[in-house]
Design a protein around this nucleic acid. Sequence first.
DNA 1: TTCAATAATAGTAATTGTTATTATTATAAA
DNA 2: TTTATAATAATAACAATTACTATTATTGAA
Lengths: 128, 128
Amino acid sequence: MAGLKYSRQREAIKEYLSMTKDHPTADMVYMHIRQEYPNISLGTVYRNLNLLVEQGDIIRIKHKDGGDHFDGNLEEHYHFICKNCNNVLDLEMESIEHINKIAGAGFKGKIEGSSTLFYGLCPDCMGQ
Amino acid sequence: MAGLKYSRQREAIKEYLSMTKDHPTADMVYMHIRQEYPNISLGTVYRNLNLLVEQGDIIRIKHKDGGDHFDGNLEEHYHFICKNCNNVLDLEMESIEHINKIAGAGFKGKIEGSSTLFYGLCPDCMGQ
DNA sequence: TTCAATAATAGTAATTGTTATTATTATAAA
DNA sequence: TTTATAATAATAACAATTACTATTATTGAA
């Protein structure tokens, strides 16, 4: 695999993200992995998160405030950010991949994909 | 207007963004406004960009790399980011607002809106 | 198995994008 | 005008992320 060596740390990060239903930030990943590898470096976490995103093993979610969030769920799904509590939730909804065709119609370039974020109030914050 | 005073700098920023077809970053806005107001502060640019976004006078585009971009075009439209040159382009396409209804079906919270970014190769980068 | 080549690491410093602070200036309204 | 206060320029502070470097871990071959 062209200059990529195994590392326990990277594996632990990937494992964690594939298990949790949260959408942790780099710092939250760092905090968690430290339980297993107490002297892992925050830089290592960032480097591997970027690597894993590049490889398509995890997804990066750009959040309005603060840093990026990460998701190890590779199945097609969509995210919702609550305007009140700022939590990131998964949405159970049918695919909207057809919007890529809509965008591509009449566009001289090539649409390879898209990312959509939904905003509003989450169930918990609805009831005040 | 409830504690908001006029300022030339803010007006210049708003004016610039409503005129240009680019989607400049805070720094690019800063560089441009400095031609008219040579000693405007970068902090002033950031503060006013945030104010204008809050008021709905401009739109914030979260870009993959580097900082946010801004757009003074208030008509409903969509953005495309080229994977190669990283430029932000406007897409001429029909509305996809219906995706909010799709997302809302079966969701216990409230979908108030969404933002979609399209990715791929722009016309210029297509021909290598 | 060693062993060499090199990717990955921990620890730390540096960078970047952005926000906060503060003394001064501009605006608005009486 | 005068007064109240929002906005400013300049700068310091901040948070998220990346770069640097000497050391360690992994891999593939002798």
